[in-house]
C-alpha cells in the first residue's frame, strides 16, 4: 500500500492534485523598530529610518512614521510595501471622512477604522504592526497598538518591530534612582560616548522631578545587558512600573503621566540602545511629538531642551483642531 500512499500528489492528475501550490511568498520583513509613549496632554511616536532585508541595508532613510491628522500620527513596522500601501489607504479614508463631515476624524475613530481595515484583510493580512499615537477628543495623550489582523488596545506605551523584545521590557520596568546613579557612575565609556550630554542633563531633570515620589526597587532582579545599558543612559523612571511597589503611604504609580522631556529621553535611549544590540535598527531616528491645543511648548522648544545633534521642525496644521505636531530628528549609528 505504501507504494501508492507515497505517490507524489501528482500534478499529472489535475483533479486529484487540486490547485497548484504557489511557490511565491508575497511577504518580506524589512526590520526596524517603532515606539510610542503617551503623556498627559501629549503623545510621542517614533521610528528608526533603516529599511533592511536579511543582512542587507536597503536604504538608510525610509520613513515609517506618518502624520495622519492634526491629532494623529501612525507608525508602521513589518513588511514595508504593505506598510506604505496601508498608510496610503488610511490617509485616503481620512480624506473621504473629512470631505463628508467637514472635520478631522477623532483618534479613537481612526483606531477603530484601522482595526476594521486590518481585519478586512484577515485572510491575506497586511504584514504590518501599527502603533497609532495622538490626542483624544478629551485632550489626553493616547497610544493605540495593533497586531497585523486588527486586534487593538489603548495603552500608555508600546514598542513594536525588530527590537520590540529589547525596548518593551525597558519601558515596562521601573528602577530606583539609587540604582540608576550607581549605574551612571560606572558607565562604560564606549556606551555613553555618543550621548554624554543627554545623559547628564536627563539625570538632573529626573532627580529634580517632584511630580513623582521616589521609588525603590524592592526586589533583587536580573537586568539584561540591554536593560543595563539602556538604564545607564536613561537615568529615568520608566513607564509601566511593573514589579514596583510604591513606598508605604505614597501615591500609586500612574502610567502615561511622565513629563515630555523624560519621555523624549526614554525614546532616544531606547533607540540608541536598540541600535547597539539589533542589526536591523539604526541610521536615523524620527520622533513625532503631538501636543494638545494650548499646551506649553517650552519643554520641547525651550533653550537646551534638545540634546546636541537633534533637529526639530513643526509640521504645518492640516485642519483647525489646534493641536500641534513637531518632528524631531536625530542620527543613529550606521553599523
Amino acid at each position: 500500500m505504501a507504494l501508492y500512499a507515497e505517490h507524489p500528489a501528482s500534478a499529472h492528475d489535475a483533479h486529484a492534485a487540486g490547485p497548484t501550490q504557489h511557490a511565491f511568498n508575497p511577504y518580506s520583513d524589512n526590520g526596524g523598530t517603532i515606539l510610542a509613549i503617551a503623556g498627559k496632554d501629549f503623545s510621542v511616536i517614533a521610528g528608526d529610518t533603516r529599511q533592511s532585508e536579511g543582512y542587507s541595508i536597503q536604504t538608510r532613510y525610509a520613513r515609517k512614521v506618518w502624520q495622519l491628522t492634526d491629532n494623529a500620527v501612525l507608525a508602521t513596522n513589518g513588511f514595508a510595501a504593505d506598510g506604505k500601501n496601508f498608510v496610503k489607504r488610511v490617509k485616503q479614508r481620512l480624506e473621504w471622512y473629512q470631505h463628508a463631515h467637514h472635520k478631522q476624524m477623532p483618534l479613537r475613530a481612526i483606531a477603530r477604522m484601522i482595526q476594521t481595515m486590518l481585519y478586512g484583510r484577515r485572510f491575506f493580512p497586511y504584514y504590518v504592526y501599527n502603533i497609532l499615537g495622538g490626542i483624544e477628543e478629551d485632550g489626553s495623550g493616547a497610544v493605540y497598538s495593533f497586531d497585523p489582523v486588527g486586534s487593538y488596545e489603548r495603552e500608555a506605551c508600546r514598542a513594536a518591530g525588530a527590537a520590540q523584545s529589547l525596548v518593551q521590557p525597558f519601558l515596562d520596568n521601573q528602577v530606583s534612582v539609587g540604582i540608576l546613579l550607581h549605574f551612571s557612575s560606572h558607565r562604560h565609556p564606549s556606551i555613553c560616548s555618543f550621548v554624554p550630554s543627554a545623559s547628564l542633563r536627563k539625570h538632573t531633570i529626573v532627580t529634580n522631578d517632584r511630580q513623582f515620589p521616589p521609588r525603590h526597587d524592592n526586589s533583587t532582579r536580573y537586568l539584561g545587558v540591554f536593560a543595563m545599558e539602556a538604564l545607564s543612559l536613561a537615568l529615568t523612571p520608566q513607564i509601566y512600573f511593573k514589579n514596583q511597589v510604591p513606598e508605604p503611604g505614597a501615591a500609586p504609580f500612574i502610567p502615561g503621566n511622565l513629563p515630555l522631556s523624560t519621555v523624549l529621553g526614554l525614546v532616544v535611549d531606547s533607540f540608541t540602545s536598540a541600535t547597539e544590540r539589533h542589526i536591523e535598527v539604526g541610521d536615523g531616528l524620527e520622533v513625532f511629538v503631538v501636543m494638545n491645543k494650548g499646551r506649553t511648548t517650552d519643554d520641547l522648544l525651550g533653550e537646551g531642551q534638545l540634546a546636541e545633534g537633534m533637529e526639530i521642525e513643526e509640521l504645518g496644521a492640516l485642519g483647525d483642531g489646534g493641536e500641534r505636531t513637531f518632528l524631531v530628528k536625530r542620527a543613529l549609528k550606521r553599523d
Partner: peptide, 12 residues
Amino acid sequence: GYVDLLGTTYSA
C-alpha cells in the same frame, strides 16, 4: 529608486 516583485520600494 528601487521596486521589486513584492512591491517593496526604497530610494538611496
